[in-house]
Design a protein around this nucleic acid. Sequence first.
DNA 1: GTGAAAGCGCTAACAG
DNA 2: CTGTTAGCGCTTTCAC
Lengths: 337, 337
Amino acid sequence: MVTIADVARHAGVSPSTVSYVLSGKRAISAATRERVEASIKALGYHPHAGARALASSRANVVALVLPLRTDMHVPILLQIAMAIVTAARGHDHDVLLLTNDEGVEGLHRVTRSALVDAVVVMDVELHDPRVPVLRELGLPSVLIGFPADSAGLTCVDLDFAAAAGMCVDHLADLGHTAVALVGPPAGVLERGTGFARRTVAGFEEAAARRGLRAVVRSCEPSHEAVQATAKELVAEHPEVTGLVVHNEPAVPPLLQALRELDVAVPRDMSVVALGPKELAAQVTPAPAMVPIPAEEMGRRAVELLMDKLNGRDVPDATLIPPSLLPGHSTAPPPSRT
Amino acid sequence: MVTIADVARHAGVSPSTVSYVLSGKRAISAATRERVEASIKALGYHPHAGARALASSRANVVALVLPLRTDMHVPILLQIAMAIVTAARGHDHDVLLLTNDEGVEGLHRVTRSALVDAVVVMDVELHDPRVPVLRELGLPSVLIGFPADSAGLTCVDLDFAAAAGMCVDHLADLGHTAVALVGPPAGVLERGTGFARRTVAGFEEAAARRGLRAVVRSCEPSHEAVQATAKELVAEHPEVTGLVVHNEPAVPPLLQALRELDVAVPRDMSVVALGPKELAAQVTPAPAMVPIPAEEMGRRAVELLMDKLNGRDVPDATLIPPSLLPGHSTAPPPSRT
DNA sequence: GTGAAAGCGCTAACAG
DNA sequence: CTGTTAGCGCTTTCAC
């Protein structure tokens, strides 16, 4: 193995000088710096991570706690996770992947053993058992999502309430007067997943503000369930001419179901989706949508973490403002004749 | 921080004794062991990962290289990744997550810096640039998937050829005489993804062996493409009464398309799917399928890695035998009257 | 602007 | 069966 001493010898300097060239923690003459950097390259030197962690008490690794639930939309989860890895690398950190089945104990372990020096927790629930642990962990953490009590925690998420409101506003602006929300499976709501509730709240609030009639439905992602929901909505709420869909896998079968019911999109029914932007390419007509900014969520989470690691103050809540991507799935409501 | 010296003092023994209790590398009297373990628990001691790595030159961390391509079925990727984490934890190892956009350089970095002591590479292509690097890395690695030249490498994968063959045999056993394979998007094949090609080969080989007429189609996952494929197959190959689908997201729209074409499943058309077993619960009729054993793939990969880390010999190729899960999507072909 | 040297916490000889 | 001790490779005072 190539050590810092090898580099020092090769460059004709002391090990500490090599260390300082690497860390930039003190001024080095240009000549020395160049010699050292040349030696580093020539020898293919990479500092030993363990030794560095031991001496500096900084592992330069962040933990990513990633629960795997079947009712979450997995591609988004992975997109966020990968964005976190990429962003962390940009700050010279690596990412250790933790599942939740080791439980809260896993957090204690990687923390106490100084394997990591910060933690990102994904898919946070309202009453998440990991939250109290984070508070007492004594090292920086960022949550993706909001628990019921987020006091003293740093949380990042899309502003789902505003996103739902934006969808409603879009429909209201087009002249719709009755709208429905097709939400995630009931289980997601019951489990107390914050974003699902915030979407519902934002939807209802915006509808009230705009004076629209509003209907809310949960929906399992199976083809049958979606079909049934569509049929019900059309039958029981013929006044509804605009749909907000916050349930990624339901979008293709929903459009299909509407087609079968002879409800043309967007002529008879406008549809706005809340989901990964890839969705737009997968169905016809390409839906108007509020994309879930996975990359930005990951990046912001890491930036907050780095700020905390560097002793900077950070805001408790980071709500990423939504944006509406135009599509071909919305139009003014059919005129009542 | 609680150190090994603190534990030693608390238990009235030397630090090395604590170390040996932890590692089990030499005999310890029951009395001493108990005292030490009690102290460890009492103080909440966790060995410092960096210090341990430095002294033992074993980081107890494996790298997981996870490319994120949109044309791969993401949920399966994540299932395998999580299985790897769980399995690694069972062997007292953690998992460092690497993306591929740091490139091959990332492998060098985590390896040279002794951040990890083994590597798992997922979603291997036939001519994968990571493969030559793995050969020269000088530390244990396992690939999930097979490159074109797997000599000297340790690879794990589902036996896709056998899986496709199993699907064909199932259809042949029911009396079908003409079958079609609806495969993944053309891009996956062109990119040289091994498993896609092995499925096609296994499909054709089995069809030939059983004397069946065989048709092969690539298919994009979009609703329209699937619909077009279904229409084409039915129109151009009316003799085909059995479908093997190796394209997870295409299954729901394919069944839907068949319904629209008045082709009843399984009365007029039998369908066997190759994909995650969760698929069975999502569509009606629940398809007969060969599930992709994500958990087993992850577990086997880690077991092989641990064997290599412990100097044991391991087989080059591990092909996991497929199994056929019964469903309600297959039946004898309609009798020609 | 640079060097010398004292640890960081642990493992693994070596010694008994 | 247990203790003593010399590093592992790096960072960071302290000294010049």
